[in-house]
Protein backbone atom coordinates (compact mmCIF):
# COMPACT_ATOMS: atom_id res chain seq x y z
CA UNK A 1 0.00 0.00 0.00
CA UNK A 2 2.82 2.34 0.94
CA UNK A 3 4.60 1.49 -2.29
CA UNK A 4 1.47 2.31 -4.28
CA UNK A 5 1.10 5.64 -2.52
CA UNK A 6 4.76 6.41 -3.12
CA UNK A 7 4.51 5.49 -6.78
CA UNK A 8 1.34 7.60 -7.18
CA UNK A 9 3.08 10.54 -5.54
CA UNK A 10 6.05 10.13 -7.88
CA UNK A 11 3.78 10.06 -10.91
CA UNK A 12 1.97 13.15 -9.66
CA UNK A 13 5.21 15.02 -9.10
CA UNK A 14 6.47 13.99 -12.53
CA UNK A 15 3.20 15.01 -14.20
CA UNK A 16 3.24 18.39 -12.51
CA UNK A 17 6.82 18.91 -13.56
CA UNK A 18 6.00 18.01 -17.17
CA UNK A 19 2.99 20.33 -17.41
CA UNK A 20 3.82 23.41 -19.52
CA UNK A 21 4.00 26.61 -17.58
CA UNK A 22 1.09 29.03 -17.99
CA UNK A 23 1.65 31.90 -20.37
CA UNK A 24 2.22 34.51 -17.73
CA UNK A 25 4.80 32.49 -15.81
CA UNK A 26 8.35 33.66 -16.53
CA UNK A 27 10.70 30.79 -15.90
CA UNK A 28 13.41 32.11 -18.22
CA UNK A 29 15.43 33.97 -15.64
CA UNK A 30 18.56 32.79 -17.41
CA UNK A 31 17.76 34.91 -20.46
CA UNK A 32 18.14 38.63 -19.98
CA UNK A 33 16.10 41.16 -21.91
CA UNK A 34 13.26 40.33 -24.22
CA UNK A 35 12.61 36.62 -24.61
CA UNK A 36 10.24 34.13 -26.19
CA UNK A 37 9.23 31.99 -23.23
CA UNK A 38 7.30 29.18 -24.89
CA UNK A 39 4.88 28.26 -27.64
CA UNK A 40 1.30 29.41 -27.19
CA UNK A 41 -0.46 27.65 -30.05
CA UNK A 42 -0.33 23.95 -31.07
CA UNK A 43 1.99 24.88 -33.96
CA UNK A 44 4.54 27.66 -34.30
CA UNK A 45 5.46 28.94 -37.75
CA UNK A 46 9.02 30.02 -38.49
CA UNK A 47 9.64 32.69 -41.12
CA UNK A 48 12.75 33.86 -42.92
CA UNK A 49 11.96 37.52 -42.32
CA UNK A 50 9.37 39.86 -40.80
CA UNK A 51 7.70 40.04 -44.21
CA UNK A 52 9.21 36.86 -45.52
CA UNK A 53 8.22 33.34 -46.39
CA UNK A 54 7.32 30.61 -43.97
CA UNK A 55 10.20 28.16 -43.50
CA UNK A 56 8.45 25.49 -41.48
CA UNK A 57 6.01 24.83 -38.65
CA UNK A 58 7.08 23.29 -35.37
CA UNK A 59 4.82 21.41 -32.99
CA UNK A 60 4.23 23.03 -29.63
CA UNK A 61 6.05 20.21 -27.85
CA UNK A 62 9.16 20.56 -30.02
CA UNK A 63 9.40 24.32 -29.76
CA UNK A 64 12.37 25.35 -27.57
CA UNK A 65 11.80 27.51 -24.53
CA UNK A 66 13.53 30.65 -23.36
CA UNK A 67 14.78 32.09 -26.63
CA UNK A 68 16.36 35.50 -26.61
CA UNK A 69 14.67 37.97 -28.97
CA UNK A 70 17.29 39.49 -31.28
CA UNK A 71 14.92 42.08 -32.75
CA UNK A 72 11.26 42.89 -33.06
CA UNK A 73 9.60 44.08 -36.27
CA UNK A 74 6.79 46.70 -36.41
CA UNK A 75 4.35 43.93 -37.37
CA UNK A 76 5.11 42.22 -34.06
CA UNK A 77 7.27 39.43 -35.47
CA UNK A 78 10.23 38.48 -33.33
CA UNK A 79 13.61 37.18 -34.40
CA UNK A 80 14.95 34.24 -32.43
CA UNK A 81 17.60 31.63 -33.07
CA UNK A 82 16.41 28.04 -33.26
CA UNK A 83 18.93 25.26 -33.88
CA UNK A 84 21.50 27.89 -34.78
CA UNK A 85 19.22 29.24 -37.48
CA UNK A 86 17.84 32.79 -37.15
CA UNK A 87 14.07 32.72 -37.72
CA UNK A 88 11.09 34.94 -37.10
CA UNK A 89 8.06 33.94 -35.07
CA UNK A 90 4.55 35.38 -34.90
CA UNK A 91 3.62 37.22 -31.70
CA UNK A 92 0.31 35.41 -31.37
CA UNK A 93 1.94 31.99 -31.51
CA UNK A 94 4.36 32.43 -28.61
CA UNK A 95 4.39 33.61 -25.02
CA UNK A 96 6.93 36.39 -24.86
CA UNK A 97 8.46 38.73 -22.33
CA UNK A 98 8.87 42.09 -23.95
CA UNK A 99 10.08 45.00 -21.86
CA UNK A 100 9.35 47.80 -24.29
CA UNK A 101 5.84 49.17 -24.05
CA UNK A 102 3.36 48.57 -26.82
CA UNK A 103 2.67 51.35 -29.27
CA UNK A 104 -0.62 53.15 -28.68
CA UNK A 105 -3.33 52.31 -31.15
CA UNK A 106 -5.50 55.30 -31.92
CA UNK A 107 -8.43 55.65 -34.26
CA UNK A 108 -10.83 58.39 -35.04
CA UNK A 109 -13.85 56.21 -35.62
CA UNK A 110 -15.97 59.32 -35.89
CA UNK A 111 -14.54 60.04 -39.34
CA UNK A 112 -11.26 61.84 -40.04
CA UNK A 113 -7.91 60.80 -38.63
CA UNK A 114 -5.60 61.18 -35.66
CA UNK A 115 -1.95 60.82 -36.51
CA UNK A 116 -0.38 62.23 -33.37
CA UNK A 117 -0.16 59.03 -31.32
CA UNK A 118 2.36 59.19 -28.51
CA UNK A 119 3.07 57.28 -25.29
CA UNK A 120 2.36 53.65 -24.56
CA UNK A 121 -0.72 51.70 -23.71
CA UNK A 122 -2.13 48.30 -22.98
CA UNK A 123 -5.65 49.08 -24.13
CA UNK A 124 -6.63 50.34 -27.52
CA UNK A 125 -6.92 54.11 -27.56
CA UNK A 126 -5.12 54.66 -24.28
CA UNK A 127 -2.23 57.09 -24.55
CA UNK A 128 -3.72 58.88 -27.50
CA UNK A 129 -3.64 62.69 -27.49
CA UNK A 130 -6.75 64.33 -26.10
CA UNK A 131 -8.32 67.34 -27.78
CA UNK A 132 -7.06 70.58 -26.29
CA UNK A 133 -10.33 72.39 -26.71
CA UNK A 134 -9.05 75.08 -29.06
CA UNK A 135 -10.62 74.95 -32.46
Amino acid sequence: MRAILLRTACVAVFTLAATPAPAATDECTGVTGDAVLSARTPEVDLYDGPAGKRLKSIDNSKFPKCLAIAQKAPNGMMQVTIDGQPSWVLPNQVNARVASGAKPICRNLAMGGNDKAVGSTRAMGEGCPKPTGDK
Partner: peptide, 14 residues
Amino acid sequence: FNIAFNERSGSPPC
Protein backbone atom coordinates in the same frame (compact mmCIF):
# COMPACT_ATOMS: atom_id res chain seq x y z
CA PHE B 1 -16.07 49.50 -27.25
CA ASN B 2 -16.24 51.83 -30.25
CA ILE B 3 -17.40 54.71 -28.06
CA ALA B 4 -14.64 54.10 -25.50
CA PHE B 5 -11.93 53.50 -28.10
CA ASN B 6 -12.92 56.60 -30.01
CA GLU B 7 -13.03 58.67 -26.83
CA ARG B 8 -9.64 57.39 -25.64
CA SER B 9 -8.22 58.33 -29.03
CA GLY B 10 -9.30 61.91 -28.46
CA SER B 11 -11.73 61.94 -31.39
CA PRO B 12 -15.08 63.68 -31.66
CA PRO B 13 -17.86 61.66 -29.99
CA CYS B 14 -19.55 58.81 -31.86
